[in-house]
Design a protein around this nucleic acid. Structure first.
Lengths: 221, 221, 221, 221
DNA sequence: GCCTAACCGAGACGGTACGTCCGGTCTTTTT
DNA sequence: AAAAAGACCGGACGTACCGTCTCGGTTAGGC
């Protein structure tokens, strides 16, 4: 549903795709290759530091030290602290919803509830705190919003979409329901709650969404 | 529905509540009074700088210079940069929704559309840009989220609530609909769009909300 | 004999001698004064650090920390590390030869020897090590050579000059001797030994100078 | 008088003196030989860079680039930047004084003047600038002082010694004069002038030395 | 002629210091 | 005592450079 949002420092790779364009005399162009395995180390270190000391306490020196890297290595890959953090947040996405093993209880309502209960509160908390801690970056870099969205909302909207599609397939809800719009509601409002209001996405709120908005919106007219 | 969100520089008031504690002889307490007219100048300067260089480029020195004030004058009124900016955002005129003169066209759908078309796109844009520009503060100061919420979402949720209540009253929608939950949907998702995704809250999106979520959710079951 | 070689950060003081030249509206021009007492603190800290860790180990952060100052305070006064160190070396000069109390033994030879023995070997060693440790700066800044010269050679040349003048006055050496040239010999060669060859300025070398060069050059022709 | 100052890259030789310690089976030791012709290229490049940007602006990357060499090639030959520069200075052609063809005009005074006028001002200037430019190294490496001394002072002191010995031989000056000490005076003070004070070693100064110090010191007592 | 090891240019790497900038406090002078 | 101006401390930023290590490729030897 959402294409992989080109995550990482691409500029360098692109530039070296074209060898021997220096001068007419043959293009010697050697040199040690950039060790791309450092990328992941650095991004992991960034997330670790973020979790440890928060955004306010994150410094490039600390990241470099944690990743056992030189600052120059960081700046060779990312032009600024902001870009590094944005990439690191984009790196979070892998740990998310397992679309292959969604709950299948027979009714949409219990499916949605099961999906909510399935996730580890700790992991969710950590993910939200990481993203919330760096909301600062929204004003620095437009693309941060996309990264945050793709981490916090899209996977859940996808999951909701699948659950609703199944409900349509088994005739639980009418085929003409706008499940594309409805599947966005709970994940988006949960993210807003977490990021802006800093209130937990708890069961009470989820129930008000499911029983007050989602299921009524999908019911037979 | 929402209490007036305590808007202003509180630190000072607290400090000056207790004068004359210097010597025992009865309150020597003299000296020049704080010139409260500077408050507005400084807040205006803050907003001006925010508009000019954005949050990332905003410095206290720059605000002081723009307001033709000394830095000490700023810190005498606000304890930190964050608090100043939060106050400045709270200073944005809250004249968004005139609850006394909401549209009344006969159907909920056209009421909602009329409410949307009523607002000046320019003012809305400015308000959103100002708030979005300082989303940074969310990670610094918890209360900023509340300020943003009360500026961007609450007035609209209130308006939606009133319109839906009217629809209930005239029998257009069933009395047992959870209008309290539904009235949050469009304003919240619009704010999320504006703040996180930085996409405009346009008619197309509004229609998908109204026709895909809100009206179905409020229809007879 | 040698005029005080304008030692210190003068640029600022000069600039602020002329008030009210900002704009036509009156020249408000307030602001905290630069605390000149920090100058000496910082120079002392610089010399202390130099003595402790040597030139190679001297960093601006360390100087700032030792002086309990911010780095900005250092850079407000000196434009670079080199300039600071040069000034610090120029600051050494006060501890030197006491021209008022030169030895007076009756003969030039024993006067010169007494002058040599008078000085504390420790202080001399410290002074030489400080200067030698920062000879690096010679290639950075031309004026460093002057500072080193005025610290290491001029006071001694002055002293030698006075001793030789006395010898002329009492008829020990002829009046037409070029004491102005000869008084430079021992101090200059001692400095060269100390700075370039890193050999001590010991008694053996002094005697070879006095008996091999200075006294013969001043003897009756 | 002065032994040839061991000029060159020793580290390599030492390293290759002990081959075949890898495995027990008898010294597999093959491989390409070090291309010693690069040595001179690199030293020349070092001197070129020194002349261009001075010691302060000299970086190993710049030398490598100028010599069209890799940095590893530099460090394979010299263990540090200092050592490279010292070697480069030692590489300066030592063809200053032709001991076989010293002037012989009949008097010591005109011999000394002739020796001074003989040298090309340009070459002398270049040599002094090169050495002065790297005086920095004195604080890093003790042996640099010896290198500078042997380039700038010793050849001239040797020459002066020979001229004075001749003057003794032909009876111009007494045999008991300490010509060993006196022959050091002018060369040393000239070097000090050039290195520390950065003043030229001009005729005026030379005359003050010859007529004010050297000749009086060597005159009959 | 082929294999192997050390060489070579190029440049990424870890580490450290530089000089700049900014937040929040304190000082000087004026009102 | 509050105001404007700006110096002050502390600490992070992004850059530059040293000395090491890695890359792909080249050049001697020994077989």
């Amino acid at each position: 549903m959402n294409p992989p949002p080109s995550p990482s420092p691409a500029a360098l790779g692109d530039a070296t795709d074209e060898p021997a364009e220096r001068s007419g005399r043959g293009g010697v162009r050697g040199g040690r290759k950039q060790d791309r395995s450092r990328d992941a180390d650095i991004l992991d270190a960034t997330l670790e530091v973020l979790a440890d000391v928060g955004f306010a306490g994150l410094t490039m020196d600390l990241v470099a030290q944690t990743a056992h890297a030189g600052k120059a290595t960081l700046y060779r890959r990312w032009p600024s602290k902001s870009e590094l953090i944005i990439d690191a947040v984009g790196h979070l996405k892998r740990t998310q919803v397992d679309v292959e093993h969604l709950p299948d209880t027979g009714t949409l309502r219990s499916d949605l509830l099961a999906l909510f209960k399935e996730q580890s509160p700790d992991e969710a908390e950590q993910r939200i705190r990481a993203v919330a801690g760096v909301m600062s970056l929204i004003s620095h870099d437009r693309s941060f919003g996309d990264a945050a969205h793709s981490v916090l909302v899209e996977p859940w909207a996808d999951a909701h979409y699948i659950l609703m599609k199944r409900a349509v397939d088994r005739g639980e809800i009418p085929a003409d329901a706008d499940i594309h719009s409805v599947c966005q509601v709970a994940p988006t409002m949960a993210a807003y709650r977490a990021l802006v209001q800093r209130k937990p996405f708890d069961l009470k709120f989820l129930l008000s969404m499911i029983d007050g908005v989602i299921l009524p919106a999908l019911a037979d007219s």
